[in-house]
């Protein structure tokens, strides 16, 4: 059975989700910050983490965005193959939701319409829209406003099969060390391994939206996530880059099949304001 969904529902939900995501973090992020604060050895690091918790509290209570960089709106739509959108164009509906969210929600407009001409579009559109077709008749919407302090430190490495798992570890550590204090640690590190160039980057981005308290379902990937988190925290970069034991809160890794000649690794760095709102229509 085909299910009709009015695109107005996309607009209304995305508007609310832009505002929700920029003012409240998900429970897994809040819990990880709390644990990190308890375990941090550096007094200055602890002070930074305390500030972050206080910041979260103020943001939610007073409706002031957690971070002034309310990001570029990355929107994932997982569309059931039995869904039939009615009432307008899906892309326009998504952008209208972002426009209303950013204008009505007092969010910063951080998007320029052209990378070289650099004129601010003044409503934070266009969004970055990713769509996937999945079984069923539902639509899952994920809105992830992405800040660019950390986005700027993200990397892709086209490794060779001979580089192997050691090459992958080295790539992740290289990206994190290079990001250092610039990416507002403690970070969340999203990693894609395999696929093609663009699939790999997409997996890294999507990995950031996974609950950070949940490990990968693949045993070797779950082990790698754990090992890399420890290695990253052993860099000593610490909260704010001012030294300490909390450099990352989590490493989330997604993998996919790849070509016999390649081993792509993408590292999408996110700051501690790892935002995402999820709803299902």
């Amino acid at each position: 059975m085909v299910r009709d969904i009015d695109v107005k529902l996309l607009t209304d939900n995305i508007k609310e989700m832009c505002i929700e995501a920029t003012h409240y973090l998900s429970p897994d992020m809040c819990a990880a910050l709390k644990t990190a604060t308890e375990n941090e050895e550096s007094p200055l690091g602890k002070q930074v983490l305390d500030s972050l918790s206080e910041n979260l509290e103020i943001a939610g209570k007073e409706m002031i965005p957690i971070c002034q960089d309310t990001g570029m709106a990355v929107v994932f739509l997982e569309i059931g193959q039995d869904v039939h959108f009615v009432g307008g164009n899906v892309v326009d509906a998504v952008n209208e939701g972002v426009r209303r969210g950013y204008v009505e929600g007092y969010l910063r407009k951080s998007v320029v319409g052209d990378p070289i001409e650099r004129i601010n579009t003044k409503d934070n559109t266009p969004a970055i829209l990713h769509t996937e077709i999945v079984p069923g008749d539902k639509v899952k919407i994920t809105v992830s406003p992405k800040g660019f302090g950390s986005e700027n430190k993200s990397r892709i490495f086209m490794l060779t099969p001979a580089d192997g798992i050691e090459g992958v570890k080295n790539a992740i550590l290289t990206a994190v060390k290079d990001a250092g204090p610039n990416a507002c640690p403690p970070m969340v590190v999203g990693v894609g391994i395999g696929g093609t160039f663009e699939k790999c980057a997409y997996m890294a981005k999507k990995a950031l939206t996974r609950d950070i308290s949940v490990a990968s379902e693949k045993a070797w990937v779950a082990d790698l996530e754990k090992e890399m988190l420890e290695k990253i925290n052993n860099t000593g970069i610490g909260p704010g880059g001012l030294g300490g034991r909390t450099t990352a809160l989590a490493v989330n890794i997604n993998t996919y099949a790849t070509h016999i000649a390649g081993l792509p690794v993408a590292v999408n760095i996110c700051c501690h304001v790892n935002r995402h709102a999820v709803r299902e229509l």
Partner: peptide, 9 residues
Amino acid sequence: AAVGGAGAL
């Protein structure tokens, strides 16, 4: 340095 990501505070 001010604390990055503590804009509300």
